[in-house]
Amino acid sequence: MLTDPPTPLQTVDRALEVLLSFDEYRKEWGVLELAEEFGLTRSTAQRLLAALATRGFLQADPHTRRYRLGPAIWKTAAMWERGGGLAALAEPLLADLARGTDRTALFCTPDGAYVRCIAAVDGADGPRRAHPYLGDIYPAHAGATSRAHFAFLPPPERAALLHGRPSARYSELTEVDEDALRALFDDTVHRGYAASEGEYDAASRAVAVPVFAGRRPVGSLSLVEDKTTEHEDALIDALPALRTTADALSDLLSNRPPAAPRRDWRRGHGAAPTPNGPR
């Protein structure tokens, strides 16, 4: 809990903490609510919100006197995206993962009923196909890369995604039955990862895990290999490394310190670790 009176540095930290408190569950603050949540006096909470609104980081509703995020947040976010955004954040982690597993590593984020690849790094064997992965989209019902994201959505969102939506068949292995897809999603949540072989791309197999920002799944991290390429290990053996990388990316996106290191995945494969996700 924050205390009064603050030093100048504490004031800055307090303002940043207020901005970071906005999420999909908390879209606005009232003065009294903020004061109670952060242990402030009413006058301090009012001055803090007013100062953020003056700079455009918050916007006050003139009727309810409640505060929401303002246009300065959009400007800051746009600048971050122009500087590479999520892709720039993920690429160093993907490079380590691809180098350590000899597979192609992908980071995909949602785009409607699909996920779109925004960052990709080839493994030691080089590109596994002629055209790049960047910009590729993967439908929710076909393949591990998309299922690792959509399976972890809140149940109502997941149900709306599957209900009554026509599903294309990309290979003889593509599942299109709604009940069977629901069971696949449930199994993915139970296991903490998704695996597929030829559901979307008949020539490839993949294993994927979700990536979170706080409590919300924001995409998936996957390893892909050509079904005809021989490796010294099976793709599923790279799951601990994949989970470790997804945890590291989730930590970055959630603005939290890195978790304690797990056992080095190269030293053997014991029981599967706890699925990555909100901690």
Rank of each mutant, 00 (worst) to 15 (best):
L9E: 15
Q10M: 12
V12K: 15
D13C: 09
V18S: 06
L19N: 06
L19K: 08
S21N: 14
F22D: 10
E24F: 12
E28Y: 06
W29L: 00
V31L: 10
V31Q: 11
L32M: 14
L32Y: 13
L32A: 14
L34W: 05
L34E: 02
L40P: 09
L40Y: 10
S43H: 13
T44F: 01
T44E: 09
Q46L: 07
T54D: 15
H63M: 14
R65C: 08
P71R: 12
P71C: 09
W74R: 15
M79S: 15
G84I: 03
L86A: 01
A90Y: 05
A90N: 10
E91D: 09
E91G: 02
L94S: 04
L94D: 04
L97C: 12
D102Q: 13
A105D: 02
L106N: 02
F107M: 08
P110Q: 03
V115R: 00
C117T: 06
I118F: 03
A119W: 04
A119M: 07
A120D: 06
V121P: 12
R128S: 07
P132Q: 13
P132E: 14
L134Q: 14
G135M: 14
D136A: 01
A142K: 02
A142L: 04
G143V: 04
A144S: 14
T145Y: 00
T145S: 06
T145C: 07
R147M: 03
A148N: 04
H149P: 04
H149K: 08
A151R: 06
A151E: 02
L153I: 03
P155C: 01
E157S: 07
A159H: 08
A160N: 14
A160K: 14
H163G: 11
P166C: 03
P166D: 05
P166W: 05
P166K: 09
S167I: 07
A168N: 10
E172D: 12
E172H: 12
E175Y: 06
V176D: 09
D179C: 10
A180E: 06
L181A: 00
R182T: 01
D187L: 09
D187Q: 13
D187C: 02
R191L: 07
Y193Q: 01
A194E: 00
S196K: 01
E197I: 11
E199C: 01
E199L: 02
A208T: 00
A208V: 00
V209K: 00
P210G: 05
A213D: 12
G214A: 09
R215K: 11
R215N: 06
G219Q: 07
G219P: 09
H231Q: 12
A234P: 13
L235C: 04
L235P: 06
L235H: 04
I236S: 07
D237P: 11
A238N: 13
R243W: 12
D247A: 15
L249E: 03
D251G: 01
L252C: 07
S254R: 11
P257Q: 06
P258W: 08
A259R: 15
A259H: 15
R266T: 10
A272S: 15
P273H: 02
T274Q: 10
N276S: 08
P278K: 05
